[in-house]
Design a protein around this nucleic acid. Structure first.
Lengths: 196, 196
DNA sequence: GTAATAGTGGTACGATTGTTTTACATTCTA
DNA sequence: TAGAATGTAAAACAATCGTACCACTATTAC
């Protein structure tokens, strides 16, 4: 597949990514993607074997996006504590989207949990990237023993905040919870790294 | 609508409730409900005007279920702290379901956030019942000022735990997080009620 | 310039969706 | 027991779903 075709492929992935986030995977039809891209829906099978294949590509794209974002966090400061705070701050940067549609990672995983186990396995990869990155940060702070558990705790807190903020469309709760979350990060890192 | 018809109506609601939880609202078809109940799918329109109407009835049923459950909590102990711990313990009682399909309240709300705002409004009512009940418990502990915020925090923590446990199918994380959650409840209630 | 490849536009498929309708059976009421 | 109300079974509705296919035009390689 050459330049021209690859461009269309990326166009499909980009449109599908947005639609999967806004409408859900199952609720997004080929017609929707066709309308968004201008590419006839019959042509999708030139680029992808099946709808699941588009999901694969979208998941891969999201993985790459996060890898890049996390690399920027890594580049912007050497302090793992600051890096974790940057991750938390994504809640503020994406406030509007979060209130409207929840977390692209969490909501996709939750949706696919109700489809085949096979599909959820794929979506889990995005969470895996965040989890291992956060684990690295906690480890770098001397919390090697409990690093993975802390990473899971951090992600769980973020997911919970998003679910409730989205359910009640409550920007105030989102802001307040973000503050508390950042306090928690500072506290966990501060106290436990002294103890460890 | 008399006895016979009402029985079928409840049968449809019960089957739809289970299917909405296991497969999601959008992914559950009339055919699925028909297969589960033995009632021809054309007949649903004798009991409900539309699919959304079935959702309404399911949400109402879930509300009633929770009202009953919370009433049992209220009856089993007069200590609001104990009551809150009972709520948290629902994560353990429903461990298997949670790992497989997430939270019936949270996952429905998250799914409907991607459909019309109208549908999500309906699903929010179930969260509202939990929220106001938890608020009452915190208030009864003398935390009137921050009761609603604490209720939201509690629900957010539970939702986050569920999302991550379900995403990674991790029973260990669920158990560990439940312990930490109960510690948090005891701590918040303990320290702040002394301070207040 | 010709042949092979890459990509496009559009049609059509069988299946399934939520919904409507129709004909029939049952149950209740007078 | 007649007739109205209530409930049941099944067929058919138009629309849409994911998928497949085909005739066609660009592009590229020799």
């Amino acid at each position: 597949m050459s330049m021209k075709g690859e461009g269309n492929r990326q166009c499909i992935i980009k449109a599908a990514d947005e639609l999967f986030y806004r409408c859900g995977y199952n609720q997004t039809s080929f017609q929707d993607i066709s309308d968004a891209t201008g590419i006839p829906r019959g042509n999708f099978y030139y680029y992808f074997k099946t709808k699941d294949d588009i999901l694969d590509a979208v998941v891969q794209a999201r993985c790459n996006d996060f890898i890049e974002i996390l690399a920027q966090f890594d580049a912007s400061t050497t302090d793992p504590r600051e890096r974790l705070l940057l991750l938390a701050d994504m809640l503020r940067a994406n406030e509007q989207n979060v209130l409207e549609s929840g977390c692209p990672v969490g909501s996709l995983s939750a949706e696919l949990a109700k489809d085949s186990a096979d599909l959820q396995d794929k979506s889990r990869r995005v969470f895996g990237i965040l989890r291992s990155w956060a684990t690295e940060q906690f480890s770098a702070l001397g919390l090697t023993q409990e690093a993975d558990e802390l990473a899971m705790d951090l992600l769980a807190r973020m997911q919970g905040i998003i679910v409730m903020a989205c359910a009640f469309k409550d920007a105030g709760f989102l802001q307040r919870s973000l503050t508390e979350l950042k306090d928690w990060i500072r506290q966990v890192v501060g106290t436990m790294s002294q103890a460890g």
